[in-house]
Design a binder for these strands. Structure first.
Lengths: 95, 95
DNA sequence: TTAACTAGGTTTATAATATAAACTACTTTA
DNA sequence: TAAAGTAGTTTATATTATAAACCTAGTTAA
């Protein structure tokens, strides 16, 4: 792409972008909460969280709240930077 | 998606978004020109132009310039509206 | 006390998408 | 007239997104 910067394919995905957007505002959120806010299915969410986590865009912590498992996600500085770069690249496209 | 509006999948594609962005600024452009500006391969561009055309987001006209075939594209009002809606929806995500 | 149900996920199979390689048809150049 | 170039299209493949199916633990109802 000569005139248009590449859009980070990890962020150029509706659900992953929603997850990142949410985490950027909250700094930390639980799986179930993200699921409700994004309207995603658990399976899809699980897969996308995994991808973001493997890229070190988010940090994932698994613990127990009482007897129930809880997965907590938070954005990393790498993730914040990637998000900012993505938004800047997008401006090439949407003016 | 409850908190996040759906992003028109036809526009949420790097190349198609680049094509639309280009046409929005120019009102009309030839295949070869779009190819250069976007850095896309001819095959990929042909497919994506076809999709945008079938959705009536762009209009495609085929003619001859001397002995060479020329494909000219321009954005439609439907396309302009779709683009605007896409940008507005995106704002949910990128603030 | 075991069968059915719920919560909180993960894994896997499938559908959709993007992309490039291969091809067509015609033209120009050597 | 053969080789290379132009302007694309078609098709095969790789990637991605998504939901269905599954798993594990705990909980209630019979």
């Amino acid at each position: 792409m000569s005139d248009f910067k590449n859009l980070d394919p990890l962020l150029h995905s509706q659900l992953r972008l929603a997850i990142m957007s949410l985490l950027l505002g909250l700094q930390s959120a639980e799986f179930v909460f993200i699921k409700e806010k994004t309207g995603a299915t658990a399976g899809n969410l699980s897969v996308q969280i995994d991808k973001l986590s493997k890229a070190d865009y988010i940090k994932v912590e698994k613990a127990f709240k009482g007897k129930k498992p809880v997965t907590t996600c938070s954005i990393t500085t790498t993730g914040v930077e990637a998000f900012e770069n993505y938004v800047n690249a997008l401006k090439n496209y949407i003016g």
